[in-house]
Structures are given as C-alpha cells and as structure tokens.
Design a protein around this nucleic acid. Structure first.
Length: 470
RNA sequence: GGUCCCAUCGUCUAGUGGUUUAGGACAUCGGCCUCUCACGCCGAAAACAGGGGUUCGACUCCCCUUGGGACUACCA
C-alpha cells in the first residue's frame, strides 16, 4: 500500500490570511481530502518581530470560515526551538554547517559592491573554513555544496534544475539564536512526515537549498507542487492596492464561504468547462495534475457572480442566519426569523452579497419617510390620480389574507378592473409608497412579506401625502 | 544585473499534432420576458505575443525574441 498522503499549510502569522494563501491552503486541503490523507496546519512564527498572536488567530478563523479543517496542529514553530537546535547541532557536528562572524553591515557592503561590479551578491564564504565556534553576534550558515546540480520533479512545473554554484551559504541560525525559515521548514516537513509540499511558486527558488538541507540531514525530500501566483489586475503581485485581499474582509462584505472556495479553486485549476463545484465534487475531482502552470489574475467580478449564484440557490434558512449580523449592523430588528426568511426569499435574486441584501431590502426593516423622497419622483408617481386606487387597495387588503400572494394578486386585479387602470400605471406608485424607491422586488411579493399592517399604513401615508399635495 | 518560472478572448480557462469556422464562464453590448430592477432565455463582439524550425499537417513539439512574474534578507 502506498504511503498515506500528508499535506500542510504553513502560513506566517505576520498578517491576515490573504487570497493567495487561502488558495494554497485550499489546494493542500483538497489534495489531502481527495487522497484520503491528512492535512496539517503549522504556524511559521520564527520571525518574532513580525509575528503576532492576533494574526495567528485571524488565520485560524479564516481557515474555519472557509471550511478547511486540519487534521493535525496547529503547530507553532516557536514551540519547537529545541528540535531545530538539535538538528543545527547535528549539522555543525558533521561539518555541514559552520559559525560565521560576518556582521550585517559588512555583508551589506559586500552585497552592494558585488551588484555594482556586476557580480552575484551571494555570501563569499569568508568564515566557511575558519573553524569558528559559537559567540556573540555569530550566526550558523549551511555549507552549501559548491559544485553539482540540484533538481526536483515538481508535480506542476516539471523538472527544475539548479546549479549549486548559484546557491550561497544561507544562514540557518540567526545571531539571536532563532533558526530561519529554510531550516525550520525542512526540519518540520521532515519530522511531521509531510509527503507533498503544496505552496506558492514564489518558493521555487528556495526549493534547491531546502533539498540540499534534506540531503545533509539524510532525509528523502517530499514531493513538491508549486502553484502559480495570484496577480492583481495589473498583473503584479496581488496587494491591498488591488482591493480587499483579506479572506475575512470578504466575509465582512457579505460573501459566502462556498463562493470564495469555488472562486479560488478555479484559479489555475479547472475541470473541463465546469464552473460551479460543491465541496464534495471538489474533493472528488481535484488533482494536482490538473493545476495549470501560469499565474492567474484575481477577478472580483467573477467572485461576485459566484456569490450571487450561491445566494440565489442557497438554503433559505442558512442564508437567513448568515444575514442576521448584517441586519443588526444596520440597527434593524433581527428577531423574527420567519420574517427574515421571507425577506431573503424576496430579494436574493437581486442581491449579490449579504450587504446588498440588507441595503436593497432596507424597507423591510425600516419605515418609509416620504419626505425623504425627491420631489420630482413624488410628483411623478404619487399623483392625486392614484388616491382612489390606493383607497380600494386598502379596502381589498383589509378583507384578505395578505400573506397569501395569490390573494394579494387577485385583490390587485380587482382594483385594476374597478378603477379601470393598468398594472403598469399603478405599480411604481405602490412600489414607491411601500419601499420609498423605484427599484425593488415584485410588489405582490413585497405586500405578502411586509404584512397587512405595514402595507396599509404605508399606503395611507402615501394617500395623506397625495391629498395634501393635490 | 543574475537565477528560475510563465505566455489561448479584457479576465478565469478548455484544448495535449489533424474531430476547431479555437469551446465554456465572468465582464461588456444587443434582444426577449416584464409592475421597476433583477433573475432567466436568446444573440453579438472578443484570443492562440512575434519569428524561426520539426512535421504531410501545428494552439498543441523544439529554439530564439519579446512580454510578464518570482527569487536574489540574520522575512516566510
């Protein structure tokens, strides 16, 4: 039996979970689920200056929101220092790493000089053979082989080979005693038994050095799969200036997690012409071999479309629950679930986000202020001619169960007939009276959802206005 | 600068040498539906970066050019 697949997502808690990280996490999670393997979450917080507890928590929250449950972890690298140190000592003992006393200032100077003279700005190996021991301000460097070629077969990119001469002796232990990324990832992935490293292709260049460390440690490297970057609309690396990049910002903007997942998975991955995927379908269909090689541009419009899609066909009860925080945020009452469900049913076709919903459907929750409507609109639609029809409407509604749309519609037809007026002529006036605007769901839906009391009182207010302005 | 990666409509992509007048989706623009707006339906416009090869035949294979991206830290 083949070895069980184990993937991991290893974010650095220096900020929120962004779109790119989320997509990488999604691919790792999907691959683990697809292969019935394990998915590990590891927080890479060895950069103590930039890592924060808050960021870690935000990343965890975002993972949960997206539904990416991990099987192991979260592990924190900051709690595994002894492990790294023991491996560094092993490397030191075996002569595969060495102490270096070069100061950052000197190094920086050499780097600048090298660039100026057109040479590679890599470490010149000053301390490589000095046989130094530990000391203040000293770091440990990995002794990279000077010759040879390091290659790996990336599942997505194919074989990538690098001349070892291009690599320099990277620092694996800082002068403050904290190990660096290239050492910790290798130790962790090796000791945690990761079989497939799925990460952004900004790590491609790091891979050869990491493979060399695996070699030095006597461990067989896992399989690598470098997924293409996600770019902004100008094809540069996605950043804040391209709009929201935080996953949770989309939650706050009223996006559904399934829309985000469905959108992200289609960036550099596809399954024929299919656009809509449920989670179970994804688990069933996702494979790294179907991931493309080229970078994708983040397109908020398509995300919006998917969000609308899921709002249109989602479960009403669930959507209603998700809408509650947004209703409350506007200061509206959100206690009547049956009512909210009717509202959601009315407006889902025309709201692309949960925020849109409440914004578009505000009249379901607040009273209409006729005074707030622009005069030209009132003059046009709340014309005294409408008074008789409005009055008969009220009479008709009084006599029926307005929660029944069919009865509402029949009542409306009767009024149209008795007043000899076309629906087209009265629809906008009624809409304006009921909603305060000219764009809304169908008036029959609105009436049955709003309920007799609100409908009658709003119609009466409109009549009052029309009478006062006749 | 060096190293590495990438290249089909504006965008996400299908396409793995001939079945292609290059398909789908988002966005855009028309039309239908209609109580407004949406939804839905129908339709339009829109791409193989350029140049060399290989081949009977290239979007598909190779090379070069161009363009873009990543890395080049005591960040991850």
């Amino acid at each position: 039996m083949a070895q069980e697949v184990k993937t991991r997502f290893a974010p650095s808690p220096t900020g929120y979970l962004h779109i790119g990280g989320a997509r990488t996490a999604l691919f790792s999670w999907l691959y683990a689920r697809h292969t019935r393997g394990k998915f590990v979450l590891r927080i890479e917080d060895t950069d103590i200056r930039r890592s924060t507890k808050e960021a870690s928590q935000q990343i965890l929250d975002a993972m949960k929101w997206l539904g990416l449950a991990w099987d192991e972890g979260p592990f924190y690298q900051s709690e595994r220092m002894e492990i790294y140190l023991s491996y560094i000592n092993k490397l030191l003992d075996e002569g595969k790493a060495y102490w270096c006393e070069c100061t950052p200032d000197i190094l920086e100077g050499k780097r600048k000089k090298a660039i100026k003279e057109g040479r590679k700005p890599k470490y010149d190996g000053t301390c490589r053979d000095k046989g130094l021991g530990p000391g203040p301000g000293r770091v440990v460097r990995f002794a990279t082989p000077k010759t040879g070629i390091t290659f790996f077969d990336d599942i997505i990119k194919g074989r990538i080979a690098t001349d070892n001469d291009e690599l320099d002796d990277l620092i694996i232990l800082r002068s403050d005693g904290i190990p660096t990324y290239n050492l910790t990832v290798v130790v962790d992935d090796a000791t945690m038994g990761i079989t497939h490293i799925i990460r952004g292709d900004d790590h491609v260049n790091n891979t050869p050095r990491q493979i060399l460390i695996y070699d030095a440690l006597g461990v067989t490297p896992p399989v690598f799969a470098h997924v293409p970057m996600i770019l902004g609309s100008d094809k540069t690396r996605l950043s804040k200036r391209h709009g929201a990049t935080s996953v949770m910002a989309y939650k706050d903007m009223g996006y559904l997690p399934e829309a985000m997942v469905n959108y992200l998975v289609r960036l550099s991955w596809s399954h024929g012409d299919q656009e809509i995927f449920s989670i179970n379908e994804l688990i069933d269909l996702f494979d790294l071999k179907d991931v493309g090689k080229s970078a994708a541009v983040f397109n908020p419009e398509k995300l919006l479309w998917l969000n609308h899609h899921y709002i249109k066909q989602g479960d009403i009860v669930r959507l209603s629950k998700l809408a509650i925080p947004f209703i409350k945020a506007q200061g509206y009452d959100a206690t009547n679930m049956a009512y909210i469900q009717k509202v959601v049913t009315d407006i889902r076709e025309r709201a692309k986000t949960l925020i849109d919903m409440i914004d578009f459907g505000d009249f379901y929750f607040k009273e209409i202020d006729i005074n707030g409507i622009p005069k030209d609109i009132k003059d046009k639609f709340l014309h005294p001619d409408m008074i008789p029809a409005f009055k008969s409407l009220i009479d008709e509604f009084d006599a029926i169960d307005t929660s029944d749309r069919k009865q509402v519609e029949d009542a409306f037809r009767r009024v149209l007939k008795s007043c000899n007026i076309k629906l087209k002529a009265i629809a906008q006036p009624v809409r304006l009276a009921l909603t305060g605007k000219l764009v809304s769901p169908g008036i029959f839906e609105i009436i049955s959802t709003l309920g007799k009391n609100k409908v009658v009182s709003r119609l009466k207010n409109a009549i009052t206005y029309m009478e006062e302005n006749s």
